[in-house]
């Protein structure tokens, strides 16, 4: 049976992890490769690396990091942050990334989704959508969720699917950082409407939240950062909990 995926997310700046991590076994707390290896050994199903490096000249550092990660780990990983052209994608896939994720650049120029999917195949194109509730309706936000757009989230999700995205990474900015649970209602609505997998992000605080996002939220995968980095939830514990709750996970 196809399992639900658990995906830790690592924020990267200038080739180093930025969010504080609380792993005693890490020799170098800022080394993304070492952290990636630990998550992979613990049973993470995939990893996401989100590059928040601001400057273009530092992008080379990202490609070098991708190669180091690809050499070190034996599970799939996605790289996102600042990717806007087919050439950007080519560099990262050639460096060894399995998938890339695009966000603001897709909103600015939706045709780039079609171009990337045609060039590299849908399976490696993840479109990340940051959404926020505005007066009871869901709208896409860009620039780390700060900038509202006029795009309705559900309509945009359908459009990126039609344009050839392979997966959607949906982050609820209203839930992100709250540790109060995922945005299950919106996730279920979008996941049910689309023919491609949906990765849920934003709001993970307890193991029950993961159960709920897979049942009520109909998510295919769930992503979280700080609760894994600070060891509030261990991946082996989470997987055995989900297994006991009747959710199919890889052991």
């Amino acid at each position: 049976m196809l399992t639900k995926r658990i995906i830790p997310c690592l924020d990267i700046k200038d080739g180093r992890t930025v969010k504080g991590v609380n792993f005693v076994e890490l020799r170098d707390a800022g080394d993304p490769v070492e952290l990636a290896k630990i998550y992979s050994d613990e049973g993470a199903d995939e990893l996401v690396f989100l590059d928040i490096t601001a400057t273009v000249d530092k992008r080379k550092t990202l490609a070098e990091l991708v190669t180091k990660v690809a050499k070190a780990i034996n599970i799939p990983f996605t790289v996102g942050g600042g990717i806007s052209t087919v050439e950007d994608v080519k560099v990262l896939l050639n460096a060894g990334a399995d998938k890339i994720s695009i966000n603001s650049s897709a909103v600015k120029n939706p045709g780039v989704i079609d171009e990337m999917a045609a060039e590299f195949g849908s399976q490696c194109i993840v479109v990340a959508i940051d959404t926020r509730d505005v007066d009871g309706r869901d709208y896409v936000h860009t620039h780390g969720g700060r900038k509202p757009t006029l795009l309705q989230t559900q309509a945009w999700a359908q459009e990126v699917c039609d344009r050839g995205a392979g997966e959607i990474l949906l982050t609820s900015m209203d839930h992100d950082g709250t540790k109060a649970g995922f945005s299950n209602e919106l996730l279920a609505e979008i996941s049910s409407a689309l023919s491609i997998p949906v990765i849920a992000s934003g709001g993970a605080g307890s193991m029950a939240h993961f159960r709920d996002v897979f049942t009520f939220g109909k998510a295919d995968a769930a992503l979280a950062a700080s609760i894994f980095h600070f060891k509030e939830i261990g991946i082996p514990d989470l997987k055995s909990y989900l297994g006991n709750e009747g959710i199919s996970v890889r052991k």
């Binding site: 399992t3 639900k4 023919s195 491609i196 997998p197 295919d220 995968a221």
Partner: peptide
């Protein structure tokens, strides 16, 4: 898939 809610295509993930 007969039921696209249950079965997404592509088949992505661990099986």
């Amino acid at each position: 898939p007969e039921n696209t809610q249950e079965f997404k295509v592509p088949h992505v993930g661990w099986n």
